[in-house]
Every structure is written in structure tokens, then in C-alpha cells.
Design a protein around this nucleic acid. Sequence first.
DNA 1: ATCCCAACTGAAAACGTTTACAGTAGTCGA
DNA 2: TCGACTACTGTAAACGTTTTCAGTTGGGAT
Lengths: 336, 336
Amino acid sequence: MANIHDVAKLAGVSIASVSRMLAGENVRSAEAIRRAIKDLGYRPNASARGLRLGKHHSIAVIVPDISNPYFAALVRGIEERAMTQGFRIIVASSDEQFSAESELLGNLIDAVDAVAIVPAEEGDRTRRMLADLNKPVVLIDRTVGDEPGFDLVHVDNASGAKAAADYLLSLGHQSFGIISGRQDTVPGRVRHRVFLKTLADAGIHVPAEAIKIGEFSRDFGRRAAQELIDNPTGMTALFVGNNTMAQGALLSLHAAGVSIPGQLSFLCFDDFDLAELLQAPVTVISRPAIAEGHAAADLLLQRIEQIGSPTQLPLEHKVLPVSLTIRQSCSAPASD
Amino acid sequence: MANIHDVAKLAGVSIASVSRMLAGENVRSAEAIRRAIKDLGYRPNASARGLRLGKHHSIAVIVPDISNPYFAALVRGIEERAMTQGFRIIVASSDEQFSAESELLGNLIDAVDAVAIVPAEEGDRTRRMLADLNKPVVLIDRTVGDEPGFDLVHVDNASGAKAAADYLLSLGHQSFGIISGRQDTVPGRVRHRVFLKTLADAGIHVPAEAIKIGEFSRDFGRRAAQELIDNPTGMTALFVGNNTMAQGALLSLHAAGVSIPGQLSFLCFDDFDLAELLQAPVTVISRPAIAEGHAAADLLLQRIEQIGSPTQLPLEHKVLPVSLTIRQSCSAPASD
DNA sequence: ATCCCAACTGAAAACGTTTACAGTAGTCGA
DNA sequence: TCGACTACTGTAAACGTTTTCAGTTGGGAT
């Protein structure tokens, strides 16, 4: 691979001139240099440049699982914005494991300028680990510790959960089932609590046996729904905390022959592919994954720009709106 | 950020000893060095290392669109394997555009050791562009030019298409509709031709007006199905060339109230999330996206290992099997 | 003709590593 | 006690850039 010395020699100038012309400065022999570059197929070495400049023009993106469509869309959003500024993204999946996450970051951190992360755990050790990186960090969807100290992007879980509860109440439901994600994550906790709180404000109590809490996974959704089917609670409406659990739940409900919305109204957080094609197109609280990616990337790029500057911008906390997409999986409860 | 000199000074040794101990060699003052590293929070600078070694420990992964679940799964597969060897992956989406692809690679190539790509175009200019990179390349799913000269991983499109046709024939269908992807891609072309050929061998001709060819997109699928609905051809079975087009087609069919499989048997290439939950769970030819990723990564890692060695292993061409997953979207044609 | 200044140029240092090379201890056998 | 060998150590060069600094050139004003 040709290097800058080869180009300089061929063009009959010093390497400084080549570097300068590449940087866009005025140089007398620009034409000769351009030709030499072309002839040799020269491209500047990224490592050398990174070493000299202390910049890498890349952003690490850590998500629990890149093959999850929601995270894939998020990554796409980050990528779109990063590209416009000439940044590349290095993607890795943590599998919801703190250990994997911290090992990944240990390896990646020296090759990137900033980190966008959906943290696996919200505990304080994650906060410390991220703080130790000494680089701009933006948290997406979840937070870490009390006082995270990082920029933050997430959707408005509270008003989504409230909208869901209000909608079901307005249809006349009195008896509910709930499948919620891990309570040690913000989306899991907020969606769960606000939903319950909204019902409570309407004077409705949800019995413990109608509440299932576990992993944000399709598998847990399937098991939870199965348990609800096996031990009937008389619920007429089921609220599920995210799309993957919802898919699992639908699998169980379908297998058990539960008719939706005839026997059970079904509503979940997060839209998903084809929700509109199911036997009963599913009503959802949808969120803008790509826009979340955009917001996260914008924040990071701003911080990167700022590096070294004396005044630091205050931390930002962007909350994106969600919306209730009404399809056909909810109706008034059967009068019995 | 502390560097190796700081560590050496604190430990009272030369930088060479630090470097050696990091490389796992025996060093007398290992303990002191370890402590110094810990105290200073030292981590080797990746750029310097990359510069010195000419290695980057990263692989560029270029897919048409990372937010497409199939590609997301593929990326996941590549990532899983790469990680085990300490390689990171740099992901970028080409949007099916050659220009975007070549620009991306131009920027990325100096920061990576190898490239895994689902090329946007199969033409010769893509082949030349990739060859000019002078790094290991593995093509996934599609090829470039005649004689690509790169490792290749894809699924067995031909036997999948044949299985699909045979299955529909065995159900008694005589009149078909086809929605196929771009014919300038291997999956588009092979699936289309083999399906037609299998029908032809059974003495069945598909009229031109029952054949729609276009982008591998949900939108094209929707439009194509709409056209087939608007201009009835008497087809009793519809074969769709991939999952995104299939989803679009299902949207149109559903909106038009076409009952599946009552009025129309439906079969497509590539499984998708929830295919089993639709009104008529969809029968598909499914393929192993994650395994494709594994195969691609393995090939690349092998080549990277080989760099500089005099003898080159011959190019590999891995073909992964597909399977017919029979659900409920196909039945015998209505007798009329 | 002289001087000054703007506009450019090149040499060299620096970024943080790895590694070839040339030592220098320390151990062991004689 | 000596020498030979082993096992480690440090110095310095190299990787390919960018950038500072100290020129050099040429043109315009005097």
C-alpha cells in the first residue's frame, strides 16, 4: 500500500505538501500531487491519522441484541446521522449482560470517540464503568444509577402507559392482566407502574396473580401468557410491556384459541412488523426507533465537537413522544 | 490518558518490558507493571498498535439496510464469530446504492482488515471496486461479475425454489402468480427462473401478466399484489421471492379481502417474524441468516490469518441449505 | 534597485506502540 | 574462579501521519 512518502516522491514535493493539499490548503503543485495520488491509489492510513490526531471518527454502539428489529432500527438511526459527519459506527451486542458489555467497551473504547449504549443493567456499577471511559456517552432507553451524568434519550413511557390504560378503561374494562418487563429497567418499571397507577386512580385493583414480570423476551411473554391462560383471573384486557413479550404472548393465546378481541382485548407497548396483519391487528403504543437513533447521534456528535473546550454544555435529556396506534385488538369487554 | 511511558516510569522499567508483559512474555517486574497499569488505568492505544502492526482487528460489514431483520440477523451472526477472535465489526448500510457502498468502503477500508458485504449491484464495477481494496472480501447472498474472485456464502436458492414449486404442484395447482425481486441479483434471478423452470417441466406456463418483477421491498410487494388483484389472472397460488415483498403482498391481499388459503395459496422465500401468527400462518422457504453470518465470518477470519503467507487457500463457495416450512397458507386449489 | 510581505515550502518532531538488536545479570558446571 | 549459557532488559528504529518552525520564493510598492 502506497504511503504519503511515495506520493511525495512521485510528485516531487515533500510529504508536508501532500498532507496540506489533502487537508484542503493551497499548494502550488496540487495538480501533480493529485495525479500521483491517483496513480498510486493512495489513501491515507487511518491508524496513523488516528494516532496523530487522537481522533478516530467512530462511535461505539452497544445494544442488547442487534438482531432485535427495534435495536436494528435504532442502530440505523444512529448510523444515518453519524455518516453525515463522516463518522462510522462500531456495533456490538451485549446480550443483556453487564460482563459482556464491559468487556466489549474495554476493547472498543480506544478505537472510538464516543459511546451510544442501551445498558444491560441500570445499576451503579454500569454508571461507574461508563464514567471511567472518559468519553462522551449517551444512554438510550434506560438509565444507570441515580444521577447518571450522561446525556439521555428515551421515549415517553409514562404517557404511553397512561394512554394505554385510559384507552382500555374507556372501553369499559374492569379486570386486567399485565405482562411487564424487568423492573430494574426504566421502561419496565415506568410502564408497569404508570399503567397500574392509572387503573388505581380509576379505582381498579389488579390482583397479583394477574401480573407477570420477567425478561423482555419473546420466551418470557409466551410463558407468562400461558400461565395467565392456565390460571384464569377473569381478565378482559391484557397489557404487555413491549413487543417481543407481546409476540410471545400472542403465540400462546393463539395456540390456546383465545379470540382477540372477542374474549380478550390485547394492547402492547412498541409497534412491530406486521402487527397490522395478525388475525386481530394489534393495537400498540408505538415509538420512533429511528428518531431515537437520530437524537442519540446528534447529542454525541455535539459532545465530540466540544471535546477539549473549556465550557461544557449541560447534560441533555431528550424524551421522544409515543403514540397510541389503534387497530382491532381491543374492544369493549364481553358482557357476561 | 496514560500511555506506556507513564506505566514504565511508574513501574521503574522500560517501555519494552511493559509491552512485553502485555504480550504475555515473561518479565521479572510483572507485578509492579500490573500495579502501575491498574493505578493509571492504562489501556494500550489502538491506533498506535494498528499503525505499528498494520492490523486493526476489525471487519467492515456492509449490508443494504441494517434495519431489515434478515440483515440484522446476518450481522449478529458475523458479530458472534468475530468477537470470539477479538475482532470488532463496523457496520454500514448501503441502501442498495453502489455509490453509497463504494464511498463507505473508501472511508472504512483503511480501518479494517477485511470486508463482508451484501453487494448492492452484481455488476463488474462492484467486482473491480472490491478487488481494488486489496483485502479479504466475502460476498454474502449475491455475487459480482462473472468470476468474482472472492469467497462466497449464500443459501441454496435453486433447491428452495424447486421445493416451493414442487409443493404447490403436489397440491394440484395449475395456475400461478409470481412476484420476484430484481433479476440482476442472484437470489432474484435464481429463485425466479428455477420456480418457472420447475413449472415448465411439469408442462405449466405462467402468463406474463401473472409475473411481477421489481425491488426487494415491502412497497413493491404491495403494489405488485395490488396489480394482480386488479387484473385477475385466475391464479390459485402465489409465489413471492422474499419476505419483505411477501409482507407487502399480504398487506394488499388482506386489504382486498382475499382469503388465504381459501381463494389463494401463498408461499414465499425467507421466513419472517410472526409468519406463524398471521390469519393464515404463512408457509415459507426459510433460511439460516445467523448461520450465514457465521460462515462468512469464519471465511474472513481464516483469510486474515493467512495474510502475508505465500500459499493462498483456494476460494470457497459455501452454500447453506434452506428448508420448506409448511404452515397453513397453502392448500389444494378451490375446485370451480 | 531595494525592501517587505504574502504565500508557500520542507525538515523534523511528535503521536504510542512493537520489536530487532545489543547488552547485562544470574546460574550452573567445571 | 572462571566461562558459557540462559533469561531477561533497555535503546532505538519503525509504522504513517500532522503540524510547528524556520526558511525560501516572487511580486508589488517604494
